[in-house]
Amino acid sequence: TTVKLGDIKVTFDNPEKAKKYAQKLAKIYQLTVHVHGDTIHVK
């Protein structure tokens, strides 16, 4: 599962960890989390 934020891409083996990371980023940057299959976009 890949978390994308602009040019930053972080890949996790564990989808749950990816989701938590995405939510953490979203909170920090006051953005929202969008899940598209294996990719989680923070924008």
Rank of each mutant, 00 (worst) to 15 (best):
E16D: 10
T39I: 13
K27R: 11
V33K: 00
K19L: 15
V10P: 01
K19H: 12
K19V: 11
L5E: 02
V42M: 08
K24V: 11
T2W: 05
V3E: 02
L25M: 07
T11P: 04
K17A: 14
K20C: 13
V35Q: 09
V10S: 02
H41Y: 14
N14R: 05
Y21A: 05
Y21N: 02
Y29V: 04
K4M: 14
A22M: 05
Y21Q: 02
H34N: 07
K17Q: 12
K24Q: 10
K4A: 08
D13N: 10
I28V: 07
K43A: 12
H34S: 12
V10Q: 03
V33A: 03
T32K: 06
V10Y: 09
A22P: 01
Y29T: 05
V33N: 00
N14F: 05
V42L: 15
T2R: 05
T32P: 02
L25G: 00
A18G: 02
V35M: 09
A18M: 02
G37M: 05
K9H: 11
H36C: 15
K4Y: 14
K43Q: 12
L5I: 15
Q30N: 14
F12T: 00
L5G: 02
K17S: 12
D38V: 08
T39W: 07
H34D: 09
K17Y: 10
Y29G: 05
K43Y: 14
D7Y: 15
V33T: 04
Q30F: 10
T11D: 04
V33R: 00
F12D: 00
I28C: 15
K27N: 09
N14K: 04
A22G: 01
H36K: 11
K4N: 06
I8R: 10
G37D: 05
Y21L: 07
A26G: 04
I28D: 08
K20I: 10
F12C: 11
V10L: 12
V42C: 07
Y29D: 03
H36V: 14
H36D: 14
A18T: 01
Y29Q: 03
Q23A: 11
G37R: 04
A18L: 04
L31Q: 03
K9E: 13
V33G: 00
I28N: 04
V3M: 01
A18V: 02
V35N: 04
D13G: 08
G6E: 03
K27L: 10
L25V: 05
D13Q: 11
A22R: 01
H41V: 14
A18Q: 00
I8C: 15
T1A: 07
Y29S: 04
L31P: 02
V10H: 03
K20S: 08
